[in-house]
C-alpha cells in the first residue's frame, strides 16, 4: 500500500519530466505516449525564449536572500529580547506578535501595497521581500530556542566584560544554530514558492519572480505542455535539490512548527 501511495506521489513528477522531453504532438497523443520516441530538449529552448528565465531566477534568488537574511537577523534580535530582557510592556508586545501568527495574510495586502507605493517601492525586489522579513513565527520559534539555553553562558560572558550585543552575537546565536537552520530552510521555501504577493506588487517583466513568470507563461502558452512542463520542472529543481541535501533541517522545521504557506 505504501508503495502504491508513493508511486502516486512520484507519478506527476515523472510525467512532468517525460513530457518536457516530448514534442507538442506527442504530448497530446491519444493514446498517450509514455516514453518520448525521439528525445528533444526543444521545450527547454522554447521556455528560455519565451520568458526571461535568468532574470526571473535572479529576482527570486535576490528576494530570497533579503527575506531570509533580514528575517534571521531581526527575528533573532527580537526573540532574544523577548526571551531574556525585562522591559515594560514585554508581554503585551509579545502577545501582539502572536496574534499576527493567526491572521490570514490577505488582511494586510491592500495596505501593504499602499505602503510600498508611498515608499516608491512598487515593482522592486525589496518590496517582494520586505513583508516576509517580519515573521511572528520566526520570532516565536527562536524565543523558545533562546529560553532553553542555560543562563550560565550569558553570565560567564558578562563577567568577561561582554556587552549585551556581544553576548547575543557571539554566545547566544551559535547556541540556537539548529533552530536558525530550520527557520532558514522554511523561510527560503515560502519565499521561493510565494505567488500572491509578488503577483500583486510587481508589474514589469524585469521584476517577475519564477512563480509569477510561470503563471504568465501559462497564460501565453496554455497548450504547449512540453514547454510548461520544462519551465515548471526547472523552476522547482533548485529547491528540490536543496531539500534533498538538507532533509533533516526541513523536517525539523516542519515538525517544530507545523506551519505551512
Amino acid at each position: 500500500m505504501l508503495v502504491v501511495a508513493a508511486a502516486a506521489m512520484v507519478f506527476p513528477f515523472l510525467w512532468q519530466l517525460l513530457t518536457a522531453l516530448k514534442t507538442v504532438a506527442e504530448s497530446r497523443a491519444v493514446p498517450p505516449v509514455f516514453f518520448p520516441s525521439d528525445l528533444t530538449v526543444d521545450a527547454f529552448a522554447r521556455f528560455f525564449d519565451s520568458v526571461p528565465v535568468v532574470g526571473m531566477v535572479g529576482v527570486s534568488a535576490a528576494a530570497l536572500v533579503i527575506r531570509v537574511g533580514g528575517q534571521l537577523l531581526i527575528c533573532s534580535l527580537a526573540a532574544y529580547g523577548f526571551a531574556r530582557m525585562t522591559f515594560p510592556g514585554r508581554n503585551v508586545l509579545f502577545g501582539l506578535f502572536l496574534i499576527m501568527l493567526m491572521a490570514p495574510s490577505q488582511l494586510f495586502l491592500i495596505a501593504q501595497f499602499d505602503l510600498m507605493k508611498s515608499l516608491g517601492l512598487l515593482d522592486t525586489i525589496p518590496a517582494i521581500a520586505l513583508p516576509g522579513i517580519f515573521s511572528a513565527f520566526g520570532t516565536f520559534l527562536l524565543r523558545q530556542a533562546f529560553m532553553s539555553v542555560p543562563k550560565e553562558f550569558e553570565e560567564a560572558a558578562r563577567l568577561d566584560g561582554a556587552n549585551a550585543f556581544q553576548i547575543f552575537w557571539r554566545v547566544m546565536l551559535p547556541m540556537v544554530g539548529p533552530t536558525l537552520a530550520a527557520l532558514t530552510v522554511l523561510t527560503a521555501l515560502y519565499s521561493w514558492n510565494d505567488l500572491l504577493w509578488p503577483l500583486i506588487i510587481t508589474s514589469s517583466k524585469e521584476n517577475m519572480t519564477l512563480p509569477v513568470g510561470l503563471a504568465t507563461l501559462q497564460g501565453q502558452y496554455g497548450t504547449d505542455y512540453p514547454t510548461l512542463m520544462a519551465g515548471s520542472l526547472l523552476a522547482s529543481l533548485p529547491l528540490i535539490a536543496v531539500f534533498i541535501a538538507l532533509q533533516r533541517q526541513f523536517f525539523a522545521g516542519i515538525a517544530s512548527s507545523g506551519l505551512k504557506g
Partner: peptide
Amino acid sequence: VLFFLPVVTLPVA
C-alpha cells in the same frame, strides 16, 4: 522524502 516532494515544489508548478 517522496511524500514531502510536493511540499517543496512550487505550487504554481
